[in-house]
């Protein structure tokens, strides 16, 4: 029988989770999905837990999703965003977090622009840490909700073909997705302009393609990523228009494959760039289901980490 607890005290990245951790999170999320579809969407499990959401980088979806997950588990929640804090006054990350922990906080959800920030924190403080995105490194909760949503559509992922399109170079979602999908036995292919695909990415066991049409014909599920202009200090492609023309997904491309492809996007979507409005709003797109599942997945992670203490 599978264990009923996680092998780790923190969720820093998919890299640090085992396959059975992932499956346990999915099973638990299943139960929470039932909870959030009730008229009264709340359980008292975490009533003695205080969670701090530390967002050193902008976020709408992830932050709301975490906050809702925490509140639906009855945890006490404190929020912090870097733009309105003492970080601007020169305080170090560790000092900021230690100050917050002195106020008796049990868990920390953190998003930070520096890769490895969550791991660094886990080496120095006692609270459970959940990585909500660290620079271009990992975004484990997004990868888990992506894989969970894929499973709902196509069943067990072993042997399934998943393509990730777009800005792989700057994407923590891509990296976490690759780790997570591999642990679940799926085949992964990345597709985008050569400048946005990291060199040697094949070493992670993924295949690489520069042709959207070819990749679409290959895959069962297409996960489209946003072009992260805020992380690009040089030009990786000539223009947004050109990108949209060569790598944007529209209905014609899907129709040409002659099969049903599940369309996913972690959001925020740029309509008319990586995805056309028609595709984003079509019945093949599960973008909004992903958001719903996000709350259930985050509830499962918070719950399982709280049980671990």
């Amino acid at each position: 029988m599978r264990g009923s607890q996680l092998s780790t005290k923190h969720v820093l990245g998919i890299k640090y989770l085992t396959e059975s951790d992932i499956r346990l999170i999915f099973e638990t999320a299943e139960n929470f999905k039932e909870v959030i579809n009730r008229p009264i969407k709340k359980v008292p499990s975490l009533r003695d837990v205080t969670v701090a959401n530390l967002f050193f980088e902008n976020s709408t979806r992830t932050r709301l999703s975490f906050e809702l997950a925490e509140k639906r588990l009855s945890a006490d929640v404190v929020n912090f965003s870097a733009s309105s804090s003492s970080v601007k006054k020169g305080e170090t990350l560790l000092d900021t977090v230690n100050n917050i922990l002195s106020m008796k906080v049990d868990m920390v959800v953190m998003r930070h622009p520096a890769p490895g920030a969550a791991y660094f924190l886990s080496q120095h403080i006692d609270a459970n840490i959940i990585n909500a995105g660290d620079g271009t490194h990992e975004h484990p909760t997004q990868a888990l909700l992506d894989a969970y949503s894929m499973r709902e559509q196509v069943g067990d992922l072993a042997g399934k073909k998943i393509a990730i399109f777009g800005d792989i170079l700057h994407s923590r979602v891509a990296l976490s997705n690759i780790f997570c999908l591999h642990k679940l036995g799926a085949k992964v292919r990345v597709c985008g302009p050569p400048t946005l695909i990291p060199k040697h990415i094949e070493k992670l066991g993924v295949s690489v393609s520069y042709s959207v049409a070819e990749t679409m014909a290959w895959c069962d599920v297409a996960n489209l990523l946003r072009i992260q202009l805020e992380r690009q200090d040089i030009k990786f492609f000539p223009s947004i228009r050109e990108y949209a023309q060569y790598f944007g997904i529209n209905q014609d491309i899907i129709n040409k494959t002659g099969k049903k492809i599940v369309i996913m996007h972690p959001g925020p979507i740029n309509r008319g760039v990586e995805i056309s409005s028609e595709v984003a709003d079509s019945s093949d797109s599960i973008i909004l289901q992903q958001v719903e599942n996000g709350v259930a997945i985050r509830m499962a992670i918070l719950y399982l980490l709280a049980a671990k203490r």
Partner: peptide, 22 residues
């Protein structure tokens, strides 16, 4: 399923695995 409602959830040695509520 009452797993999420138990008062001993964080003091048990072994966490409980939830079942389905329907």
């Amino acid at each position: 399923d009452i797993t999420f409602y138990r008062d001993d959830f964080r003091i048990r040695e072994k966490p409980l695995q939830a079942s389905k509520t329907s």
